[in-house]
Design a binder for these strands. Structure first.
Lengths: 219, 219, 219, 219
DNA sequence: CATGAATGAGGGTTCATTCAT
DNA sequence: GATGAATGAACCCTCATTCAT
């Protein structure tokens, strides 16, 4: 009956009960990303999830609690996934870096979850609690993983020495920017379509050379 | 702490007329950035500007018109400034690039205007008209300038050949990210203070090497 | 004194759903008539109907939509009634005329609906759409019916020849005047109470003689 | 500079001061009639009179005081005029009646003042004080004059005996109706233009016959 | 569990009124 | 006297939240 029903090819008859919370947070996520937290009405969330407004309150105490759940739900399943990804090629820092960045895009940036960075950026100040949670559970672990990659690469001599905490932030920026862009201007303005793949390749090429120890004819 | 606190008990009633719009848009900008457009109450804007709520409507037809004005006012004065900056060192692409990026931070990112990217990113979908204006008058000209710098550098042989439209987007990302960060998580979470200067230097160093033609072939 | 006073302390919440619109338009009608459209606050309408302000918006999109509904609701049920009335004595034009005029008073003028002429007269200019609707669905059919009565009477020789469209307008005027009077000066000023029945009889007597073909030539 | 200036062919240079109140009440009258009291903004009144909003308060204490003045100004000059009119033909009741009715239309109904009945009818309940004033100074004297005409006619045998207070009310109704109509539906709807003169003649003819003692073949 | 009618606090907006110029 | 910028109370309308069914 709703869009959510089509996610699973053929959902078993009355298995709805357990799936409900996810359907609700999914609907909420997309609307929060589209319009922002404050501008999203719970009516719309309920409508998009195919339930009545009152039903939302069976699962979440308030709009803010729904927001918290949206972030938690959106974040938890990916955390593990990400960690596994990197163990598969732990010996080659360059490949690890590539895997990390492209993996982030494939798993997060290009999916529904790609809106979360925009959502969190917009609402961090209004919801410090959620921001804290996100920082602790997503940003910090993510940065730690990347930093480890960089540290290993430097140790292995394939990356030149560099301030890795700072570099981590810098290196993530173009990815985040792409995600933000796709959920803001790209949606509402006639903007020359940016091919994510070309963008990623260009970007990876750029930073790889930027990190390479061979470079440096200059000084 | 607010502008109102610094005014004399009874400021002259008429003489402010010309200054008012800027005072109002300044107050609105900071609140829109802090809380988002929808979550900002016009009461607060008025209070921060030290006027009553009704006064806002002497200068702006609606909340949305105020938003448009905030963007316009915030953007127009910097556009010229930026263009001049680049003509001072038009012969050295590397210096131009450095000037452009550091100049952006000095003139925009580190000032009150640094919140505009966050604001526009958050609200682009809700206000396509404003987004269009911003795209046409800020993003597109900005990208054109940067692209020209890159093209010149490539022509001069100081940058290696690269897809400049894509690179432009990528190269701006860390700057924007820094601005966004400072107006979101940095405000509300206990986050290790990032020194903007170190960030910028690290970043410039990285992309300069990434763009350098001397960087070794493949391995 | 108001409808709310007569309800039980906690009226069943759901079962009222079908009755609500009529309760609301009834409350709105009386207030619009009393104070005019612009001077009527939706709070009052809601209070008089015994609901909260927000409830109005479950049934009507706006204050203006409520106004339109007030007219529609007030008018539709009477239209049919009126038409039937006249078929009962279609052979005697004088009786038809009397039936029409006294019927109008009994069914409309003396009831709650008697305020509608005042309301529409006051607001026609402000709400041309509603005025159009009223003109098309009430005034025009009403005049058509009366005109037919006159035409028949003239054809039958019981009325002298006369410009029926104009006469129609004239003949309705004293009725409308009575209705207007009762909803304006009669309410607020110490005014010698006018007995509607005496007024109607005097009036009918007057126009009947005025229409009579036997009335002497000039002098 | 304003429409009001064109009323007098060539107003003396600075003779404005005395004329101001009338210009203001004239502007207010037309707007009150057009839109009703509550829906009229003082901005508009001031604009139509060609003065600033604040100036209104130099002459009237409040919006309600302006309303009172509008009625007073509109009514006073006509009261005398009317009384004189009737003394010119005090010997012929039929002519007096005709003079009275046609005179009312010529002096009031067809002029700017023709909107006052609509205005007073609409606002009587909201402003009992003004209504009282109007009743005492306009309606009651007017009815008295008419009643005298009727009484004389009856005494003279040119009108048949009738309850004159009631008849007075009835006889005025078509005139008032015409005035109301012209300021409501006639302005906003495509309505077959009613020729006032034809209307008046038809109406006078009708009531004259209705009042004639010769009529009465019936019973 | 689920619904959706009902609520009412709070938002954006208007406008009569004031007052420094 | 005349102005018009400023005010703030009060309006219409929205929407998160509740609760009887």
């Amino acid at each position: 009956m709703t869009a959510a029903d089509q996610t699973q090819p053929a959902p078993p008859r009355r298995r709805r009960k357990e799936a409900r919370p996810q359907e609700l947070t999914a609907a909420a996520l997309s609307l929060f990303v589209e319009k922002g937290f404050a501008a999203t009405r719970l009516d719309e969330v309920a409508a998009r999830a195919g339930v009545s407004k009152g039903t939302l309150y069976l699962y979440f105490d308030s709009k803010e609690a729904l927001f918290m759940a949206v972030i938690r739900e959106g974040v938890l399943p990916v955390l593990e996934e990400g960690r596994k990804l990197l163990t598969t090629c732990a010996d080659d820092p360059v490949r690890m870096l590539r895997e990390y960045l492209f993996g982030w895009w494939a798993l997060i940036g290009s999916t529904e979850l790609g809106g979360i960075p925009k959502l969190m950026t917009s609402e961090a100040q209004n919801f410090p609690g959620v921001a804290d949670y996100y920082l602790k559970n997503v940003i910090t672990p993510g940065k730690a993983m990347m930093r480890e990659i960089l540290d290993r690469g430097i140790a292995a001599g394939v990356f030149r020495p560099i301030d890795t905490p700072t570099a981590t932030q810098i290196l993530m920026a173009p990815l985040l920017h792409l995600a933000l862009w796709r959920h803001s201007f790209a949606v509402c303005c006639q903007v020359p379509d940016m091919d994510p793949n070309a963008y990623l390749e260009c970007y990876f090429d750029l930073i790889l050379k930027g990190l390479s120890p061979q470079s440096g004819g200059r000084a």
